[in-house]
Design a protein around this nucleic acid. Sequence first.
DNA 1: TCGATGATTGAG
DNA 2: TCAATCATCGAA
Length: 208
Amino acid sequence: MSVCLDQSFYSRPTDLVAKELLGNRLVRLIESKENGIERLSGIIVETEAYGSDDDPASHAYRGLTPRNAVMFGDVGRAYVYFTYGNYFCVNVSARACERKAGAVLIRALQPVDGIEVMKSFRKTDNEFSLTSGPGKLTQAMNITKLLNNVDVTDPKSLLSIEWGFPAPQIVITQRIGITRAVDRKWRYVAGYRKDSCLLINKYASRRR
DNA sequence: TCGATGATTGAG
DNA sequence: TCAATCATCGAA
């Protein structure tokens, strides 16, 4: 019995949602004639928050366009966009009720279900390079624009987010790969304690 | 219509 | 460190 996070979870400040998504699970169901329904999943270990007209780094900064419409619509929907001519990125729409738009970019997963299938989509055997980046995880789970605006609060959706456990430790940093509002610390990474040091999850992205 | 840009990645 | 690669968007 799977339990998804509901709309009330996403109807809160985007940075808080980004932080609390860590430890929950992104689930992709793939329908195929040979294998029926394949379940791919991974624990969310890295996220970033993006706002609206108050956030120059956000796609929603200059207002509503066809691409970013999901950020302005119902919360708890997948916002999937194409970038750099090669890759998709997946977000979940989320914002406090008084905000115009918002989304949380899912940047990395710790793979759990369907690892062999994900390896074939990614054309690699390296488990640590499977879902350790926003473009990698969409490739591993075959997440494309077809899933834009899918309701991730519905367990029957082809893409959903299941309730899990909060990350035991969280590392907070600046967002990656942006050129504006670089000072804001809206990136959240799952971490763990080792010998009184706080280390980042091994499935998080490596670049900065 | 057109040029600039980008919430990235893999190769070198 | 850098090029690949193209949809999107704002300006013309």
